[in-house]
Computed example of a mutant assay.
Amino acid sequence: MMHRGGSMGEWMDEIITRFSEQAALVWAEQETLEDDAMFRRLWNLAGETGLCRVGIPEAHGGVGGGGPEISEMLRRLTLKTGNLGLPLALMISQLVAHFMVGALGSEDQKAAWLPPMAEGRFPSAFAVSEPKVGAHPGKLSTHAEKIDGQWCLAGKKSYISNGPMAGLVVTIAVVGEEKGRKQFSAFLLGGDTPGVDRSDAMALPFFRPALHGNIRLDGVSLGAGTVLGHPGEAYAELVLPFRRYEDAMMMGCVVGAFRFVLDRLGDAVANPDDAVCETAGTLAAHVTALERVARVSADLTADPSPEAVEESTALLLHFRQVAGCCRTLVASLEESGFPLDDPSRAVMEDLAASSGIAANIARAKQVKLGRACLAAGKGL
């Protein structure tokens, strides 16, 4: 339990230190462990040390907090461990717990799911995207039909973070159509539900040991009490806001990773010249600024207003641009004779490989923002 009178930050430092000490023993076996075995052991440690309790109310076994606390936990964890894989898995699970089950669930749903999530009995996942069509609402085809009081689900979902081992998968399915637009509901799908096939796993070359996979739903039958939120409104209630929450939380991971690398650069070379120091100073300034952007973005997750959404978009676009500059500066320092140690190099490789995720979405947002800006300038 979190010490009464102690700050959330102090508690985080204590449990993250305890986690990292034990996790080091698992990482020492990485050459002999498969990713799924490594992930399971690290996830169990996360549950045992209390990391999974952040963002879940005390009444359901958590320590409270919301977006800012989840982001800060992810930042500190990445900074301490120099690993982005487990923070990514935790990010998805805590988003599901706080912004989905915690925010939209009935009292029965919260009582059923939040306590085991706080204990870290399993990771959770959010299943929206489908093979070849992504998350485009007009092209999603996984559907749910109500027959004799039960919801029957069928279809395929892809690119699911935590999918292979998720004990809870919040699944988006088409439940009808109105005026030519599909209507979606979200379903609380237990990982061991009959008819769920998770054999089609995916291997990504970054964020090790995070697990990703596809699921096939065939003959899945769920009770009426498994619908999360308002029936037919899941795309607006869950899917659209989720990207903003995910972007904000991921900023915490990224700034923790950059700070991890920056803190280790000082031991690399003695007596660097002024040009190298200038580059390092620019990097340090950028990282400090990104930490501030990450905190503000996390704060904004509690505000659903259009103004907050617009501000979040601007901060995200700025963050992505400056993060790219930081990667370039680290590469420049390495070329100047600052060799990265193996943990730092692994972090930078993860950041580089993942920088293309949602790049097209970010570009589209940037174009939209630019058009609005230019139109306003012309008085259109």
Rank of each mutant, 00 (worst) to 15 (best):
residue 185 S to Q: 12
residue 185 S to Y: 10
residue 186 A to V: 04
residue 186 A to W: 10
residue 190 G to S: 14
residue 192 D to H: 08
residue 197 D to W: 03
residue 202 M to V: 12
residue 204 L to G: 01
residue 205 P to L: 07
residue 205 P to D: 15
residue 206 F to W: 15
residue 207 F to K: 06
residue 209 P to F: 06
residue 210 A to R: 11
residue 211 L to S: 06
residue 215 I to W: 08
residue 217 L to W: 09
residue 228 L to M: 09
residue 228 L to Q: 03
residue 229 G to R: 11
residue 240 L to D: 14
residue 246 E to P: 00
residue 249 M to Q: 14
residue 251 M to S: 06
residue 254 V to F: 02
residue 255 V to E: 14
residue 259 R to W: 12
residue 261 V to W: 07
residue 261 V to T: 07
residue 262 L to S: 07
residue 263 D to W: 02
residue 266 G to A: 00
residue 267 D to L: 00
residue 267 D to Y: 02
residue 268 A to W: 02
residue 269 V to D: 00
residue 271 N to L: 08
residue 272 P to I: 13
residue 274 D to M: 07
residue 274 D to N: 01
residue 274 D to F: 07
residue 275 A to F: 03
residue 279 T to M: 06
residue 283 L to A: 01
residue 283 L to S: 02
residue 283 L to V: 00
residue 284 A to F: 09
residue 285 A to V: 03
residue 287 V to A: 07
residue 291 E to W: 05
residue 291 E to T: 06
residue 292 R to Y: 05
residue 292 R to K: 11
residue 295 R to V: 12
residue 297 S to N: 11
residue 298 A to C: 10
residue 298 A to Q: 03
residue 298 A to L: 08
residue 301 T to R: 12
residue 302 A to S: 14
residue 302 A to V: 02
residue 302 A to D: 10
residue 303 D to P: 05
residue 303 D to E: 05
residue 304 P to Q: 07
residue 304 P to T: 06
residue 305 S to R: 08
residue 310 E to K: 14
residue 312 S to V: 02
residue 318 H to D: 14
residue 322 V to H: 05
residue 322 V to A: 05
